[in-house]
Write a protein that binds this DNA or RNA. Structure first.
Lengths: 259, 259
DNA sequence: TCTTGAAGGATTGTAGAACAAGAGGTACGA
DNA sequence: TCGTACCTCTTGTTCTACAATCCTTCAAGA
């Protein structure tokens, strides 16, 4: 009997399956909201009303609630019983934790650079070049995008779908705090050179050195972000900022009372 | 004006908040299903019918669907459009990926043993002692539980809530494959000694050595599990096993046709 | 003046019914 | 054997309804 579909074709089609199956309204709604949150349309702390969003998006409350569950699981939103869904407000402890995670995961991935296939290494370098081109043109928003791609490319060196997803989520969550950086040039500028150094080490397969560079890089970036980031500690309760195990958010802003 | 509640008390109560807010039916349902899946009551590949489970648990379809979203996000179940929710079937590639992730995360956490406070290090040793006691009594199921606690304690050395959660999820997902191990004594027995070695290195703050030991440990355990684990590749499509980027599952068994 | 307590309205939590759409099975015919 | 038409079951989604809870406001008392 003849094999109907070659193995290569089967593998390609298998990769398309997720795309095929992703046509659930709830997931599409979650994707929209995720994008909007990342864009800053919904500020951290703001409440996402079921009725308002449901009407605006033309979906029922049930469907919207399913989408909310997904976003809450990604920590982009938090769910307060009988109060609703709020866009997460990262504390300084959250930012620190996210950088701790990134040092571990990105560092671990960079260390494996020597084992990674060449295309994955070249992809890292490509993101650096994108960033440099954008920086030369003064397009600092694109620089930021390229920087995100750089870090995801670093994570991809681990050749693990789960690590990829973790990177995606961690960077998305951290994006909640990046809106505090009003001057992207000042924030991203100094790292362009360091990105290139790391990319070259990766390209050369010198994983351990790349990891060390990346470790220092992330530590510096964390300090810089924390220096300007004002977490919910500003809201006024002491003993809150650094010592709470897992403060998803502090106290969301109340929406303006309806007339 | 007198401060009504001291800062310390406020901080303590703030920690209780998560407990207070965790009483959503959907989350409780998700917790029940999670437990049952881990126990093996729902075998990998089996379908979770909305109607049947909703009736059995006494919750509406809407609530159940919210719970399903959570489980799918944890990868314990997979969602197929218009077909329903199925308990995930791990491929060999999934198992390999989970061990890759564990090597990176647990290894990274173990490396930080020197920075971890003493109670966290002692907690690692405590799990080893639990396992040894259980093994002496021949209670191999408890040995397995203690082993899970051991690895979570290793992860806790990172002092990161997000790493803790990642460990929890990764071990839960891997639990889907552990049912293939029909003989827990054979599987866990050889690792009791290695656990102790690692725990002692952790206790001594010798993180790098602990990481190396753990790396070899996990690599061996992976090989042992993969040797006996038959993933869905047995279902018969070639080119599926190792080269697909993210095969959450292959092809779930169909439920027996109703009469 | 400050604190406490009690309506009142608004929103969420959950259930249930309803219908369209898709998947899977079955019988029939070529 | 294959293809097609039909049929049934389940899911996807919406709508309605109501209880529970929270927030606000306002009034009463210390």
């Amino acid at each position: 009997m003849v094999v109907a579909v070659s193995d290569e074709i089967a593998a390609v089609l298998a990769g398309d399956r997720s795309e095929l199956a992703s046509s659930s309204t709830a997931e599409r709604v979650a994707g929209i909201l995720r994008t909007r949150i990342m864009e800053g349309l919904f500020a951290p702390g703001s409440r996402l009303s079921e009725e308002v969003l449901g009407r605006a998006l033309g979906v029922s409350r049930n469907t919207l609630r399913e989408a909310f569950r997904l976003l809450c699981h990604e920590r982009l939103t938090v769910h307060e019983m009988n109060r609703g869904i709020f866009v997460s407000v990262l504390t300084k402890a959250d930012v620190a934790d996210l950088y701790r995670l990134r040092r571990m995961v990105e560092g671990g991935a960079a260390r494996l650079a020597g084992d990674a296939p060449v295309p994955l290494r070249k992809a890292v370098m490509a993101t650096v070049e994108d960033a440099e081109v954008a920086a030369a043109g003064g397009a600092w928003l694109e620089v930021r995008t390229a920087d995100l791609h750089f870090h995801r490319a670093i994570g991809a060196l681990a050749q693990s779908p789960r690590v990829d997803e973790m990177m995606r989520r961690a960077l998305a969550e951290l994006g909640l705090a990046f809106h505090a950086m009003t001057d992207p040039e000042q924030f991203h500028g100094p790292y362009l050179g360091r990105n290139r150094v790391i990319a070259e080490l990766v390209n050369a397969g010198r994983g351990e050195e790349a990891e060390r560079q990346l470790y220092g890089y992330l530590t510096d970036a964390e300090a810089q972000l924390l220096a300007v980031y004002e977490g919910p500690a500003a809201a006024g309760i002491a003993g809150w900022s650094m010592d709470r195990p897992e403060p998803a958010h502090f106290e969301p802003e109340r929406p303006a009372a309806r007339p």
